[in-house]
């Protein structure tokens, strides 16, 4: 007869405790409270009679306006991600493959430099460029190329421009690490076997960098759909996204329940994306599912 030896608690596990507590207190608890508030008629802490309701969600799905807002948010997120990827990938590839240490350092500094300035400041800088009285329009008017200012601000394009500028570094930094770990000899082997550089890139480098593409895209998409400052300033309140609507519901309509429901929907969109990402990554890396 064998008896299972009692498992000794791992002393190192205690080091994780503060992080676990921090995560529980500042992540799970607020989200849990938000989920609860989204299905209640009021705040149970201050209101005596509070009941369960689905009206906040029903309101969202009954009125096509809110569905349009959700789709606008997702669309801006998708376009921002694709543009950031298109700009970020070549830059990341260059950074990962550059032989010169100085060159790498300079490129890294160039990517990181914008991150040393706040998002608000960077967005205001874009406003000075894109507004009717901004640098671009005034230059074009003074050159006689246009008579009326181009509508560069207060459009989705304006928002995407601002978001891409802010989030490209996240894409580049994520991709650089992944591309840097790909063995260059694999590309050389493909070329030795007769593949052109382009084909070697498409059939070797690109598939191997897919985890980086997915991770970078996930990061940029999640940041873009939850952005508040840039869509407000560059969209001029004429492009409504979920974060703006949530702020409006809390600050001006004092409808915490509906704001919580909108927040949960935003969270669900992100979660669905993470699940899809995990599955895609599992398929790419040959596993059924990533734990």
């Amino acid at each position: 007869m064998s008896s299972a030896a009692p498992q000794r608690p791992n002393g190192l596990a205690l080091f994780i405790l503060p992080s676990v507590l921090l995560f529980a207190l500042f992540f799970f608890l607020p989200i849990g409270l938000m989920a609860v508030m989204s299905v209640l008629t009021g705040n149970p802490v201050v209101a005596p009679k509070v009941a369960f309701t689905t009206r906040h969600y029903a309101r969202m799905f009954d009125d096509p306006y809110y569905l349009e807002v959700i789709w606008t948010t997702i669309r801006i997120g998708l376009v921002t991600t694709l543009v950031a990827l298109a700009i970020g990938y070549p830059l990341a590839h260059w950074m990962a493959r550059i032989k010169s240490r100085t060159g790498h350092a300079l490129l890294l500094m160039a990517v990181l430099a914008p991150m040393l300035t706040g998002i608000v400041v960077r967005t205001f800088a874009w406003m000075t460029l894109l507004s009717d009285k901004g640098v671009i329009n005034q230059t074009l008017i003074s050159l006689g190329l246009i008579s009326q200012p181009l509508k560069l601000m207060y459009t989705e394009t304006g928002i995407v421009v601002g978001l891409v500028h802010i989030y490209v570094p996240f894409m580049v930094l994520t991709l650089t690490g992944v591309i840097g770990r790909i063995d260059e000899q694999l590309e050389q082997a493909a070329e030795n076997l007769g593949a052109s550089p382009l084909r070697a890139f498409i059939e070797v480098t690109l598939p191997l960098s897919l985890p980086g593409i997915l991770a970078g895209s996930l990061l940029v998409f999640a940041l873009a759909i939850s952005a508040y400052v840039t869509p407000i300033l560059l969209g001029g309140f004429q492009i409504m996204t979920l974060p703006i609507l949530i702020y409006q519901q809390i600050s001006a309509n004092f409808n915490v329940g509906f704001a919580a429901a909108l927040g949960i929907v935003l969270l669900m969109i992100s979660l669905l994306l993470v699940i899809a990402y995990n599955r895609a990554l599992g398929l790419v890396s040959g596993q059924r599912e990533l734990q």
Partner: peptide, 14 residues
């Protein structure tokens, strides 16, 4: 206010 907000948000969207 809710009804007004929904309406004006629609009016002023780009």
């Amino acid at each position: 206010k809710d009804e007004i907000d929904q309406r004006v948000n629609r009016i002023f969207r780009a």
